[in-house]
C-alpha cells in the first residue's frame, strides 16, 4: 500500500507555521493499528498535554516524534521541515540518517524511567550530548550543564551516579540532560509515573519553571490531571488511536463535549 506523497508539501512556509505538525500520520504493529490518521499541530512555545486511557496511542505520538518508532504513513513536520522524509525529485521520500539527525537535534525527550546513563555521574550525563554530539569544548559543556543542574536543583549532586539518586532526583537530572542539547521541542513521556507520590512535586515544579521561563514547545503525556490542567495551553484527549477531543484545559476538564471524555475524566477523578 503506497501512499500518494504529492499531497504533502515539501516544507511548511509562511509566518505562522506550527513548530510540530502531524499530517495524516499512521502507525500500526502488524494488523494492530495504534494511530489512525493523526492530524495535530503544536505551535511554537505552546504546551500541549496528551491524556487518555492506556493503549490509546498517546505515548506513541511522542515516540514517533523522537524517531523511536517508525511511522507507517503520513508526514511529521518539525520547524517547517519533514522529520523522516526529504525532498527528492519534487516529492517526499524516506530521509537518510543525516537528515533525520539534523531534524532530530531540535527535539529533546524525558522518559518515564529516566534512562540516565548509569556509568556516568549526573554532570557527565548532562555533558555527554554537548561534548560528543554537538562537539562543544568540555569547559563550555560543563558550564552549560552546571547551569541546568542548578536550575533543576541538582547542582550539589553533580558527581553522583544515578544509582545514588532517588527517582525524583534522577528525573530532574534527565530533564537537565535533555535541555543541555538546547532543543526547540521538549517531550515528557509520563515523567512522574514511576515516581513515589511524595517526590512528584520536585519534577512538576521543574516543568512549571520551564513553562514560565522558556520559549520551549512542549508535548507531555501524563496521568496527573491536576498538573495538566494547571500548566497546559491545550489538552488532547486520545481514544483508540485518535484525538477524541481537544480544547483549552479549563474547557476540556470542566465542560467536556464528548461522552468518552466525560467517562474517562469521571473514572480518573473517582480513583483519585
Amino acid at each position: 500500500m503506497t501512499e500518494d506523497m504529492s499531497q504533502y508539501p515539501l516544507r511548511l512556509e509562511g509566518d505562522n507555521i506550527p513548530m510540530v505538525r502531524f499530517q495524516n500520520v499512521r502507525k500500526s504493529y502488524g494488523a494492530l493499528t495504534v494511530l489512525d490518521d493523526l492530524n495535530l499541530d503544536v505551535d511554537a512555545g505552546e504546551m500541549v498535554t496528551i491524556i487518555g486511557p492506556s493503549g490509546s496511542g498517546k505515548t506513541t505520538v511522542l515516540r514517533m516524534l523522537m524517531t523511536l518508532e517508525t511511522i507507517n504513513g503520513g508526514v511529521i513536520y518539525v520547524d517547517g521541515e519533514p522529520l523522516t522524509h526529504m525532498e527528492k525529485g519534487g516529492v517526499l521520500v524516506p530521509a537518510n540518517p543525516a537528515h533525520i539527525r539534523r531534524i532530530r537535534s531540535k527535539i529533546g525527550m524525558c522518559f518515564q524511567h529516566f534512562n540516565l546513563f548509569p556509568h556516568m555521574t549526573a554532570l557527565q550525563n548532562c555533558m555527554e550530548g554537548p561534548v560528543q554530539v554537538l562537539g562543544l569544548p568540555r569547559k563550555e559543556a560543563e558550564e552549560r550543564s552546571m547551569e541546568l543542574l542548578q536550575m533543576v536543583g541538582m547542582a550539589d549532586k553533580r558527581d553522583q551516579h544515578p544509582s545514588r539518586l532517588s527517582g525524583g532526583q534522577q528525573q530532574r537530572v534527565a530533564i537537565a540532560r535533555a535541555l543541555a542539547m538546547r532543543p526547540k521541542v521538549m517531550l515528557f513521556d509520563e515523567v512522574t509515573s514511576a515516581l513515589d507520590p511524595e517526590v512528584i512535586g520536585e519534577v512538576t515544579n521543574v516543568i512549571r519553571k520551564l513553562v514560565d521561563a522558556h520559549n520551549l514547545t512542549m508535548l507531555m503525556v501524563t496521568h496527573q490531571m491536576g498538573f495538566a490542567k494547571d500548566i497546559s495551553d491545550r489538552v488532547c484527549f486520545f481514544f483508540n488511536g485518535a484525538i477524541e477531543e481537544q480544547a483549552a484545559p479549563s474547557d476540556l476538564f470542566e465542560n467536556p463535549q464528548r461522552e468518552r471524555t466525560q467517562q474517562f475524566l469521571n473514572a480518573v477523578l473517582e480513583s483519585n
Binding site: F117, E128, G129, V133
Partner: peptide, 20 residues
C-alpha cells in the same frame, strides 16, 4: 531505554555503541 536515551540526545549509532 538506554538505546532510546542515547538516540534522544542525537548520538550516532557508533557513538551510542561506544559511549553508552
Amino acid at each position: 531505554g538506554q538505546w532510546e536515551a542515547a538516540k534522544a540526545i542525537n548520538m550516532t549509532p557508533a557513538q551510542r555503541m561506544r559511549r553508552i
